[in-house]
Structures are given as structure tokens and as C-alpha cells.
């Protein structure tokens, strides 16, 4: 069993938890993920590691209450326990040797982009963060992002805070005056697709994080497979980071919708990343 050490509500539908998992905390790196299962009847869901405390032995997760499992998880409190917590899985992000980075987060993807931005900042890169949300009530981690970035751009779809529009609008504008040696985009597939399109034309290396449907997270089921540069890859062991210019996003979106009906049946509404 894995104890929930603390819980913080970031907005109405996004919660943050620190989970006691010292062995995972000792090894975790930005870009990796865990798989958890709440109880005996539960499904295994992957969540990206949003932070870790090596001394305290805890791993931070941030999740959106969109499906049966995440709603159940959100109903748990500090002191409660989770049955299974496995990791750190996947390859760590390669963040070294960049000078000017632009980190883009969409919705809940911001929670996953944040540790990467933090690591880039720690390694001495200049970091611009563009974080997009549907409206001002959904904004998360604003102070944290401010602290580790050179420029933070917030966008909202409805203009209720920051720039009205999408992250791609800001990126496009920035590219007119700035140069980046890497763009890291994490969020809904459609966002990552359009960011990658922009940066491909501009010739900027782009890394995206693919959170596919998966069961084991160790390469065993192949459910998370996607096409990258014409080859089949497994998000769990070959990723989750991939070259955004090579990912077949249309196929990934189609695969992401695979269990929509069952999710609704199980009172789920969509993939956990569709923030």
C-alpha cells in the first residue's frame, strides 16, 4: 500500500498529491511516469511524475478528475492509501545542452511540462513557458512556473486571463522575434500536433510527450503503440518523449478515442489529458 502524504486542490477538477514511494522517489527523473491502481477492482492508469522529494521519499502526481479512476482518486484524502504505485517508468527526458527553450503546456499538460521546465532552468537554459487553459478558473501552477521561467505566457481560450487564444498563437508571435533551440510541448494531442506543425516550418527541434492508453507500462501489452517516423513505437518504453515532427498525431488521436464508450459507461468522459 502507498500512503497519500498530502493533497492540494489546484482547481475544481485538478488535484495534486504526494505519495509515499521512497524507492521511486530515489530514482525518478523528469519525463517519467508511474502507473497506479487504487484498489482490487481498479484499472491501471498512467500518470506523469510531476515532481519528487528524494529525502522525503515522496512522488508528486497531478491529475484531472475526468474518469471513474481519477474521480475515485480525487475523493481520497491525505492519510488514505493506494493499492499499487509502480515506477519510475519510461525514459527520462533529455534536457541537457539547451540554451533557449520554450516549454508549452496545455491544460493539465502544464503539470507535466512544469518539471521539465524546472529541470531546464536548473541546467542553466533560458526558459519561456507558454501555458494554455480553457478559462481562468482552470489555471494551475502559475506561481511555480513564474519562479523558474524567464517569461511566462498564459493563454485562455475565452480571454478571461492572459492572452485570448491558443498556445500556438503565442508561439507563432514569439517565433517572429525569438529563436529557440528546443520546444517541448505537452498537452492534448491536437495541441501538440499544431505546435509541431509550426515548429517544423520554423525548423526547431520539438519534443512531445505521448500519454497513450496502456496496461502494464513495461512494453508488454503494446496498447500504447504509435507511429513515429513510419515505425511502430511503444510510448511506455520507447517514450513517452518523441520527436514531434515524426509522430503520427492523427493515428494517435484515433487510438486515444478507443475506449470512449466504455469510459462513459464507467462514468468517464475522456482521456485524462484532455484538459
Amino acid at each position: 500500500m502507498y500512503k497519500i502524504v498530502s493533497k492540494r486542490i489546484l482547481n475544481n477538477s485538478v488535484h495534486m498529491m504526494d505519495i509515499e514511494a521512497p524507492l521511486i522517489a530515489a530514482k525518478a527523473k523528469p519525463g517519467q511516469f508511474i502507473i497506479l491502481r487504487i484498489d482490487e477492482e481498479g484499472e491501471r492508469i498512467p500518470l506523469t511524475i510531476a515532481g519528487f522529494n528524494r529525502e522525503g521519499g515522496t512522488v508528486k502526481i497531478i491529475f484531472q478528475l475526468v474518469g471513474k479512476t481519477t474521480m475515485h482518486l480525487g475523493a481520497l484524502e491525505a492519510g488514505d492509501e493506494i493499492r499499487d504505485f509502480v515506477g519510475p517508468l519510461g525514459k527520462a527526458s533529455e534536457l541537457e545542452n539547451y540554451k533557449n527553450a520554450c516549454v508549452i503546456g496545455g491544460g493539465l499538460g502544464t503539470a507535466i511540462a512544469y518539471p521539465q521546465a524546472k529541470e531546464l532552468h536548473r541546467l542553466g537554459a533560458k526558459v519561456d513557458i507558454i501555458a494554455g487553459f480553457r478559462n481562468k478558473d482552470l489555471i494551475i501552477l502559475e506561481d511555480e512556473m513564474k519562479n523558474i521561467s524567464d517569461n511566462l505566457y498564459i493563454t485562455t481560450d475565452d480571454g478571461s486571463n492572459g492572452t485570448k487564444g491558443f498556445v500556438t498563437d503565442v508561439l507563432k508571435k514569439n517565433l517572429e522575434t525569438k529563436t529557440y533551440d528546443v520546444v517541448i510541448a505537452i498537452g492534448p494531442l491536437i495541441m501538440m500536433k499544431f505546435v509541431s506543425k509550426l515548429t517544423k516550418d520554423a525548423g526547431i527541434k520539438t519534443i512531445v510527450s505521448m500519454n497513450s492508453v496502456m496496461v502494464d507500462g513495461t512494453g508488454m501489452c503494446g496498447g500504447c503503440r504509435l507511429t513515429v517516423g513510419g515505425e511502430t513505437k511503444f510510448a511506455c518504453v520507447d517514450g513517452p518523449d518523441f520527436d514531434g515532427h515524426l509522430v503520427d498525431f492523427d493515428e494517435a488521436m484515433m487510438r486515444g478515442a478507443r475506449y470512449k464508450t466504455e469510459e462513459e459507461h464507467s462514468c468517464r468522459l475522456g482521456g485524462y489529458l484532455n484538459g
Partner: peptide, 26 residues
């Protein structure tokens, strides 16, 4: 599906008992 995924959903995750168990299989 890979046979691994199909059988793991059914055997380990008990998808044949969906929705009593949370893991589906189509």
C-alpha cells in the same frame, strides 16, 4: 490487440467482469 494486451486485460485485470472491474475490453 496483441494477444498479450487482450489476455492481460481479461486475466489480470478481469475485463470479463467489466463493469464490476474497471478495465474494459472490446
Amino acid at each position: 490487440y496483441s494477444a498479450n494486451e487482450f489476455l492481460t486485460r481479461i486475466n489480470l485485470m478481469k475485463a470479463y467482469k467489466f463493469p464490476e472491474y474497471d478495465t474494459p475490453v472490446k
